[in-house]
Amino acid sequence: MTRLKSVGQVSVRVNDLNRAVQFYRDILELEFVWETNRMAFFMCGDVRLMLSVPEKPEFDHPGSVVYYTVDDVQEAYNELQLKGVEFHGTPHEIGKLGDITVYMAFFTDSEGNTVAIQEERPTE
């Protein structure tokens, strides 16, 4: 069996593609790649993010949570708040993974999807 090595693309369901493109391009500042009439693509590191208007009702459901890694979760939180992003709470420690402590803050994107920013830093 071939082993899975990394995430290549994540699909996020949207209802208003123009509004979602503005949010991901202008607020989150992801690298815009291209757009069709029902989809838009961004790069986030090595992962491609596809914003997609559902083609059928069975595909119109909230998606998985996408966790964006940042260098400084508090700084990113502050910057996004200044741009109007409403968070569900402040950045907080989620837990420890060996010698790494994980901090996260959650918010809702323009389409109602839950999104998170996360920072992994060496445990002190």
Rank of each mutant, 00 (worst) to 15 (best):
C44D: 10
D71R: 10
S64W: 04
V70Y: 10
R48C: 14
S52V: 11
S64M: 09
K56Y: 09
D72I: 05
V65P: 08
S52H: 07
R38W: 06
V47Y: 04
D46Y: 04
T69V: 14
V47Q: 05
D46H: 13
D72Y: 07
F41A: 05
C44S: 15
T69L: 10
F41T: 05
G45Q: 03
L51D: 03
K56P: 06
T69E: 14
A40P: 05
E58H: 13
L51S: 07
G45W: 07
L51I: 13
M50H: 14
F42K: 02
K56M: 08
M39Q: 15
D72E: 14
G45N: 12
Y67H: 13
F42A: 04
H61Y: 12
M50R: 11
D46K: 12
F41M: 02
F41C: 00
G45Y: 00
V47H: 05
D46V: 13
F59Q: 14
Y68T: 06
M43F: 10
A40R: 08
P54E: 07
H61M: 13
G63L: 04
M50G: 06
M50V: 09
M50S: 14
R38T: 13
G45T: 00
D72W: 01
K56Q: 09
L51K: 08
R38Q: 10
F41Q: 06
R38G: 01
D60P: 01
K56S: 10
Y67D: 11
H61Q: 14
V66R: 04
H61C: 09
P57R: 02
F41E: 02
E58Y: 08
V65G: 00
V70G: 06
P57F: 00
Y68P: 09
F41I: 01
V47R: 06
F59C: 07
Y67I: 13
S52E: 11
P54W: 01
G45K: 02
D71Y: 00
D46R: 08
V66N: 08
D71W: 01
E55L: 15
S52N: 08
D60A: 12
D72T: 01
